[in-house]
């Protein structure tokens, strides 16, 4: 019923509406993170009080949590592939694993924020503090929203009340998930790896 690709004229591009909509949305998200990253890059060296970036970053720890997040992209691909093959159990399994890996990353971020705060970097401490927490916080919120969407998918699939084509929906959420991962690669490089 809700499958729009039934009639040729419903999709002039051949891409379903929801997928094209997600691509469009992600285009917009690029500019959102672009603005936040620019703000951070402008302010990262401006520390009038409190710790400097090099003093608090724990590169090995963040590298591990970044690796976990990147692996979740792999499990997401497996989930999409399983959904296309109509393997429901496998789809649910990989969606759950993806959400767990994402949750591990967010947990790592919470731990990191707490550690930084205890070392003297508050949200209002310095321009570095404000822009660091804003940028990484926005990314963390995006991952969290992704986790909620993944878990909701699993729940909805269990009730088998999916409006639309299942694989298409999984793929759409997958697009979002990969985007959030790619953004993290950029953030990790610019924030953690390039010295001020």
């Amino acid at each position: 019923m809700t499958d729009t690709a039934v009639h040729g004229h419903d999709s002039s591009t051949g891409i379903s509406n929801i997928k094209l909509g997600m691509w469009t949305f992600l285009g917009s998200e690029c500019l959102l993170f672009g603005g936040l990253i620019s703000t951070y890059m402008l302010y990262r060296g401006r520390v009038t009080g409190g710790p400097r970036p090099a003093q608090i970053f724990d590169i090995p720890f963040t590298s591990v949590s970044s690796f976990v997040l990147l692996m979740s992209s792999l499990t997401m691909v497996l989930a999409v592939s399983a959904a296309h093959k109509n393997e429901h159990r496998k789809t649910n399994l990989w969606l759950t694993v993806t959400a767990l890996l994402g949750a591990t990353f967010v947990g790592g971020q919470v731990y990191e924020f707490t550690a930084f705060y205890n070392e003297g970097l508050g949200f209002s401490t310095s321009l570095f503090g404000s822009s660091f927490y804003t940028l990484t916080g926005f990314h963390g919120v995006h991952v969290t929203v992704g986790i909620i969407m993944l878990m909701s998918l699993v729940g909805i699939f269990k009730r088998s009340a999916v409006p639309g084509k299942k694989a298409e929906v999984v793929e759409m959420i997958g697009l979002y998930w990969h985007f959030v991962d790619i953004v993290w690669i950029i953030i990790f490089t610019l924030v953690y790896l390039i010295p001020v």
């Binding site: 917009s28 998200e29 690029c30 500019l31 959102l32 672009g34 603005g35 936040l36 703000t39 402008l42 302010y43 401006r46 009038t48 949200f123 209002s124 310095s126 321009l127 503090g129 404000s130 822009s131 804003t134």
Partner: peptide, 28 residues
């Protein structure tokens, strides 16, 4: 999204004490 970022920075400054536009903290 660009104005969204700007508005968030402004709101964080006004409501949560962020320093984005605080010249005393070295803001531009």
């Amino acid at each position: 999204p660009v104005i969204t970022v700007a508005l968030f920075l402004l709101s964080f400054q006004r409501n949560f004490g962020a320093r984005f536009f605080d010249v005393a903290a070295g803001a531009d």
